[in-house]
Design a binder for these strands. Structure first.
Lengths: 342, 342
DNA sequence: AGCACCGGGACAAAAAACGTCCAACTAAGC
DNA sequence: GCTTAGTTGGACGTTTTTTGTCCCGGTGCT
């Protein structure tokens, strides 16, 4: 069922919206018994005229009966509502979830794909597709887009497709190299994205975690300083979100720091920063690439992560309050709202 | 899957059309490899401008890539087409089937609901719903609508809903009473329809099968003559289609006539007439109610019947060539086209 | 270099959607 | 029986969207 809706959404993006609207109206009419146009318009939050068009439609379909004294649901209408129920539950679950998360954290947009990335690889692909799609809609011309590494971001890169405004864009890594496999490096992903989207890219050939002295000396190098300035001038950043401890291990953070993170209750990691449960930044190492102040200045901060296990981490990062767009999956989204309630 | 599409069609009637259109375009682009807008417009049969809007949409969705040299399908697009295939097969199967039957028999409209009425009661309900819907669209104001009996027609009556133009309509039985149960009598159905649709009705209290003398004497009666004239003035008739032998038995036709029908290869029955394989009328008993010449004069002749077993009968009646609209189910429709091929 | 085809910008005409008001009608309360 | 608050459906000007039509600067093939 999800599969079908998913396919249809690609050919008819406002299908769910229209269905949602009409279902809401029909449902309202049913619970109201006998109701008038204006009253109904109020309660579903539509202007009288557009509601009238919808009512005409429902009448045409024989789903409602309308008399001079008001309108009521017909037998067919009641039947349809019943059959619609399971569909709507799926349909609305996600859109409602999106809206709930969006408004609570004050985001611009939330996109939830069905499933759980932890369990199903297909969901992870969907996440990538959704991420690519949102990026495609947000980019302007000749923009610089900073990206991080990770398997989710790799999926996003894979699903990018050429779009005219992207032709002049630069893709750059948000940070230096990590101890991960090549395919998941920010550098690799930036270049993949550029190739897929038909844009250009620049790389940052430095390790991400450095001591203070090494950091200072590297920043002296004019080439490196130049590319870093370029990166920091990006107006769009697309990043993954990870679990703090998992990321610390993967990054080969030294034992003392790891222990310190654990003590402070580190929960999430995003673009090199660690966050606790309340969204506070815990660990601030001298960083090559984007700094948190750069993030705050961005036009579009797009976070992409999914899987039930990442739910808490995502919530922490959102709490920090710099995100604009979140792309996640159903399992993670439920975790996020569950944390809101507790 | 059918279930979902079916529900959606009630809330978004042009969903299938839009999906069909976009699928066709996308598919064309795929098989063409690299193709231009104008060339494509020709081959899918759309004006350049509307195709352009569609292309913009597909580009927006990232399903195609468009360069100065033309457009080609993207990875996502190809993927979508693959996933779309089973859906389209269902979607198009029926619409294609409809068009095939429509054009072959020169009908105005053919509506096919999925399933087999012989097997599933749900399909029969769908048939009724579709029949009611087509009737609702066809009726004008203050019209007379003649209806026959049968279980399918009962289903149509059940699914009728009030519509403003129907308020002034008269529902009348097309023929006299049969030896069937009360619920399936044309009289009963006419009255049910009138109640459901908010119209009025008149009844014909006469047995349908009579000897010549009895017929003549009945026609002398002014009340009966008046109502029969009224019935014959109808401009819309909605009728079921039955298998000849089944109907003969149900009507308690006398053994000799039954044998004669069998000898002549009677296949179908509709509004009291029997048809052979080639659509010729076999048996013409003196009839109370609509005569075949009245049928030919009608504005809208709507035949409604479904079930694999009725396929051949439907084809026979269609062949006679007086039908305007056919409402049937998938199983019957396939039987009809199979007979076209053989 | 020539040519046939390409995408996309531009713009007026046509169509659809929308906001707004009003007349005729209905049900209920008093 | 009358008032009143509520209803539908018609009408109409305005705004928005869609559509038809040209044309311009490119691209790729020959």
């Amino acid at each position: 069922m999800r599969e079908i809706l998913d396919i249809q959404k690609q050919l008819l993006p406002d299908l769910v919206d229209t269905m949602k609207k009409r279902y809401t109206i029909l449902h309202h009419i049913m619970v109201s018994g006998l109701v008038g146009r204006r009253t109904l318009a109020m309660s579903v939050g539509a202007t009288e005229r557009v509601l009238r068009a919808e009512v005409d439609f429902l009448k045409e379909q024989g789903l409602i009966e309308v008399e001079a004294s008001g309108m009521r649901i017909s037998v067919s209408g009641r039947e349809l509502l019943e059959r619609l129920e399971p569909l709507v539950k799926d349909l609305f679950g996600l859109t409602e979830l999106e809206e709930r998360i969006r408004s609570h954290f004050g985001l611009k947009q939330v996109i939830i794909v069905p499933g759980d990335s932890d369990v199903s690889p297909h969901t992870k692909k969907e996440l990538g597709r959704a991420g690519a799609s949102v990026l495609r809609k947000l980019v302007g011309e000749d923009e610089t887009i900073a990206v991080t590494g990770g398997s989710t971001m790799a999926e996003v890169a894979y699903h990018l497709t050429p779009a005219t405004p992207m032709k002049g864009c630069w893709f750059v890594p948000a940070r230096g190299g990590l101890g991960e496999s090549v395919e998941l490096q920010a550098n690799t992903i930036a270049s993949t994205m550029a190739k897929k989207a038909g844009g250009r890219y620049r790389l940052l050939h430095v390790p991400d975690h450095l001591g203070e002295e090494a950091y200072q000396s590297l920043m002296q190098d004019s080439h490196i300083a130049e590319i870093i300035a370029f990166i920091r001038g990006a107006r769009i950043v697309v990043h993954g979100i990870g679990e703090a401890m998992v990321m610390a291990r993967r990054r080969k953070v030294d034992p003392e720091t790891t222990e310190s993170l654990r003590r402070d209750g580190a929960l999430a990691e995003a673009f090199g920063y660690y966050f606790d449960r309340d969204g506070n930044i815990l660990h601030k190492m001298p960083t090559i690439g984007l700094r948190i102040e750069d993030i705050h200045r961005m036009d579009h901060v797009i976070g992409i992560a999914g899987g039930k296990s990442k739910g808490e981490s995502i919530a922490s990062v959102l709490k920090h309050g710099h995100e604009d767009v979140l792309v996640t999956d159903e399992a993670a989204a439920w975790e996020v709202v569950n944390r809101l309630l507790s």
